[in-house]
Nucleic acid binder design. Sequence first.
DNA 1: GGTTGGTCGGGAAATTTTCCCGAATTGGAC
DNA 2: GTCCAATTCGGGAAAATTTCCCGACCAACC
Lengths: 217, 217
Amino acid sequence: MTASQTEGISILLVDDHPVVRQGYRRVLEHQGDFQVVAEADNAADAYRAFKAHAPHVVVMDISMPGASGLEAIRNIRARSSDARILVFSMHCEATQVKAAFNAGANGYVTKGSDPSALIRAIRSLVRGEQAMSDDIARVLALESLSPSGSVLDQLGEREIEILRQLAAGATTEQIASNLNLSMKTVQNYHYLIKTKTGMRTDAQLVRLAVECGLASL
Amino acid sequence: MTASQTEGISILLVDDHPVVRQGYRRVLEHQGDFQVVAEADNAADAYRAFKAHAPHVVVMDISMPGASGLEAIRNIRARSSDARILVFSMHCEATQVKAAFNAGANGYVTKGSDPSALIRAIRSLVRGEQAMSDDIARVLALESLSPSGSVLDQLGEREIEILRQLAAGATTEQIASNLNLSMKTVQNYHYLIKTKTGMRTDAQLVRLAVECGLASL
DNA sequence: GGTTGGTCGGGAAATTTTCCCGAATTGGAC
DNA sequence: GTCCAATTCGGGAAAATTTCCCGACCAACC
């Protein structure tokens, strides 16, 4: 952990959209004491960049294609128990948020939040606190009031990823290729997902995924 | 159309995410001759801002909550036949793209594109040209190879009814029962629908049905 | 050290998908 | 009226997928 110097907060930026990344970089660096020391557009690069730069804070969009961003979080957390990981996502479903925190995130801010919320969250993380935007706090609060978990709670991470890709319209072959699995495994997961969720049809699966915020239509 | 001055290109930015908007603003204004003269986060405000500022170019994300961004495009186009409207979206489905152009957009760039593609597209629009990112061009090119009008035009009445029920989540057995057909016939239609529409997956079929207003989610 | 739980795939039977086909019906067009 | 084209309905057969079952591996946990 040679995170660094006397002045400034070093940041690793992970997002699969180049334009968006560029935008964040400018917004963050406009703060003066923030410095984006590296960028990545996938889970593997994110982990490599973290090893190479040991930034104070990782700001990461977890809705990246292919391997889940959650994997990147887990990898980074496994390597450094005091890494500061801030998830910056469009999604605000309780399951997503809980999944991120379970994977090892320290904070969660939605892209719909005011820019200042992102800045504030980063500073909170640096101080060693957890942080989340107001909408996330509200979602978690509501969720904690009802004993019923989402249907997605019964699904493992791999299952969720495969469900997402299925709902997005990917073929078995594409998913297998995306995740480096055999088609047989994808087929097995596909079947497992259907039985676990009680859905009898792929169309029902799509609707479920959309309801749970996994797919966008 | 008092668009403006001797130097610079004025831009209206429409996106429902404040942070993203802020990011784009900085990216664009970094170009020097670009100036973001207004922002909006919904269709109604976008139209009001356009009336107020008459910008050279409107850069708009159409996947906003509530009223469709397409509506905003239509409104602006209705008011000014020479407005320059650039859609900047995450989606690259042919139907989405065609819908945007039909509504009156002059260009379409995906958020996954290189930042320079956005800049180039804006300059193309200012010169009066149309513009789209490479991935969009590819999608439209592929789509144009099939002699499709509105996709559903190629389907018969029975096929549409079966597509609707499929998208609603009905099983082959249920559809056969509902329509008093043999399962074999339903299966044949199911296959026919897929080949006619070019969809390879039931999930893609659901998305198509929803896009075409056949199913509601 | 044993036990859970997630991941990854093989195997085999049941089912569906994928194309091919023909027949009946309808609605014009000539 | 006749012919043509499109639509509707379903059979057949090979290919592919689904549906279950299974074992192996690994990490975490008691």
